[in-house]
C-alpha cells in the first residue's frame, strides 16, 4: 500500500508527466503558454479539476452503469470546471480574462477524462485523488516550464520581471503560435533522448 502510494504520487512527475510522457492535453499546452504566469494558472486550474474529478468519479464508480459512464464523467467534470471558472472570476479576474475560453475547455481536456477512465474508474477514491493530484501537478510544472521558456526567450521577461535587461532583443516568434510547436517539440525530443540514454522503457499512457 505504502509502495503503491509513493509510486502513484511520483508517477505524474516523470513516468506519466503530461504532456511529454502522457501525450494528452496538448491543445491548452500550445495555446495558453505565452507566459509563465498563464501556464501556471492553467496548470493549477487543471490540477484542481483532475484531483476532484478523480475523487468524485472513483467514489461513484460502483454506482455509474458502464453504458453511461462517459456521460456521467462529463457531467461531473463540467460541474467542477464551472466552479473553477466562477472561483477564478471572483478571485483572479485578470488571469481569467487572459485564459478566456481555455478555462471552460478544461471540460474536454483529455487528461481529465483520460485519468477518470484509466485510473479513477478502477481504483478507490483516495488513491485516485493522489493520482489526479500527481498528474495535475506534473501538468502544471510542464506548462510553467513551457511558458517560462517561451516568455524568457520570446519576451525577455519571467513572470513579468525583466531577465536579460533592456539590450536583449527577444525572439518574439516564440510567443506566437509557431513558437509553441517549436518549444513543445524540442522539449519532447529532449525528453525522449534522455529517456533512451537512461535505457528506460517508453511508457506513454
Amino acid at each position: 500500500m505504502q509502495q503503491k502510494f509513493t509510486d502513484v504520487l511520483t508517477a505524474g512527475l516523470w513516468k506519466r508527466i503530461p504532456p511529454f510522457r502522457l501525450v494528452l492535453g496538448l491543445c491548452p499546452s500550445l495555446a495558453v503558454t505565452m507566459s509563465a504566469e498563464n501556464g501556471l494558472g492553467m496548470g493549477l486550474a487543471t490540477a484542481f479539476v483532475v484531483t476532484l474529478s478523480n475523487g468524485a468519479i472513483s467514489s461513484l464508480r460502483n454506482v455509474i452503469p458502464a453504458k453511461v459512464r462517459i456521460a456521467s464523467y462529463i457531467v461531473v467534470i463540467a460541474t467542477l470546471v464551472s466552479i473553477v471558472e466562477i472561483l477564478m472570476k471572483a478571485f483572479f479576474f485578470p488571469l481569467s480574462e487572459q485564459l478566456g475560453i481555455y478555462i471552460p475547455l478544461i471540460v474536454v481536456n483529455c487528461i481529465v477524462l483520460g485519468r477518470a477512465e484509466a485510473f479513477a474508474s478502477k481504483n478507490p477514491p483516495f488513491i485516485s485523488m493522489v493520482d489526479g493530484f500527481s498528474v495535475g501537478v506534473g501538468y502544471a510544472i510542464s506548462l510553467t516550464l513551457i511558458g517560462s521558456l517561451r516568455e524568457i526567450f520570446g519576451a525577455g521577461t519571467w513572470f513579468g520581471h525583466l531577465v536579460f535587461g533592456e539590450a536583449f532583443e527577444p525572439m518574439s516568434f516564440l510567443v506566437s503560435a509557431p513558437g509553441a510547436f517549436m518549444t513543445i517539440g524540442t522539449l519532447l525530443a529532449l525528453q525522449n533522448l534522455f529517456s533512451r540514454w537512461r535505457g528506460e522503457k517508453f511508457i506513454q499512457g
Binding site: I64, P65, A78
Partner: peptide, 19 residues
C-alpha cells in the same frame, strides 16, 4: 441509467447554483 444520470445532474445543478 436514467436515475443515476438524473441524480448526478441534479447534484451538479445544486452545486453550481450554490457557487
Amino acid at each position: 441509467m436514467v436515475v443515476v444520470l438524473s441524480v448526478i445532474a441534479g447534484f451538479s445543478a445544486a452545486a453550481l447554483t450554490t457557487a
